[in-house]
Design a protein around this nucleic acid. Sequence first.
DNA 1: TCTGGGGTCCTAGGACCC
DNA 2: TCTGGGGTCCTAGGACCC
Length: 420
Amino acid sequence: MNSKLTALVDADNFYVSCERLFRPELRRRPVAVLSNNDGCVVARSQEVKDFGVKMGTPVYQIRNLIKSRGIHVFSSNYELYGDISNRVMRVLGRFSADREVYSIDEAFFRLRQDQAENLCEQIVSACWDWLSIPVKIGVAPNKTLAKAATEIVKQEKLSKRFLIISRPEEIDEILKKLPLEEVWGIGGRLAGKLKRAGIASPMALKSLPEEYLRHHFGVVTARTAAELRGSVCFDLENQPRPQKNLCYSRSFGQCIDNGPELRQAVTDYATEAAAKLRKQHLKAQSVSVFILTDRFKSEAPQYANSASFTLTPAINDTLPIVRGALKALNRVFRNGYAYKKCGVLLNRLIPEDQTQPDLFIPENPRDKGVSAAMDIVNRRYGAGSLVLAGSGIRNQKWRMTRRCRSARYTTQWSELPQVK
DNA sequence: TCTGGGGTCCTAGGACCC
DNA sequence: TCTGGGGTCCTAGGACCC
């Protein structure tokens, strides 16, 4: 009875819950959070889901609904969500050190079966009482089934905010309710391929021989099926794995058709990417840049390309990374297109303290100084306070729009909520 | 007018080596 | 007429996740 189970804690409509935290009057009102540039809906309160608004719906398609139903709309405020996420994870950490932070709003746990019920109740209460963040929990023999259990808790609006399944008949009962594409690891394309092969449900998937699945659908699908049968194939990862790539990309507020403005955007994005790299104490061995036209404007000429530039030795200073990114941009830029998006990727990352100094190319103390100054000023006075002149100063058509962003309540002194 | 961003892993195929 | 085999590494593309 003391076997170990896996739990998944999942915050309800996380971005919406974060917005409601400082606007409690919105608790039972319809609320939606938008992607960058206020383009798509990326988080919906239950009320908005009940209106039939799907994840990723372009905002312009639901303008009327927003008006007629009085949906409260927020631009995304990732500084706020990131900070609240850290607080949630700290609270969860008090219940078990055997925990994996899986995403901004989810964490896996290992817990003893005889303690599961009690722990779930405590976790639900703690998240709500201390942070006003509602969570749901699924508990099962492995990650895939814990995900499935969480999905059922969400779909069925159970009286409890958690569901514990361990016996085979309990597992089958929830698998019979779960659509194939809701299985963790089975996305839309794979579900279509499986269905064409006559495999239409999680129960059908789990009954197939390992060898057959591996051969026709790959090793990951075979493992997923094994987890549906109750074996453990995906372990808990307490230590975050070292990151291998880092990307900073944004769609532009307005399309850009000329080199100088594109260079501004690339300079800005490379500056941001380099700052992220230093924050994580990593260095990159190459930088690449991609540019894209607007794929939704089918009548306009389309173009997409990318190029990379090797950084030797590995580096994390802003100036050389920006120079490398601009060289890569020069190789792919073509006149005559309206560009909608670009991105800067830093590849083959290695920990700062494991890099080999190059005998022939000494580190440039000036580059180091510039990076350090930017980090200090931007930490103290807010992101974007000290930038390179190459990013441009005004009329940045490329800069994204966020018309309805809430305040950065917890990460900017000047935006602290006020109690009157 | 208006359609997100940031990751990971697996696989197949080609280059290269012995 | 007859033209190897096996291994590694790298990359691009495709799938998945939130």
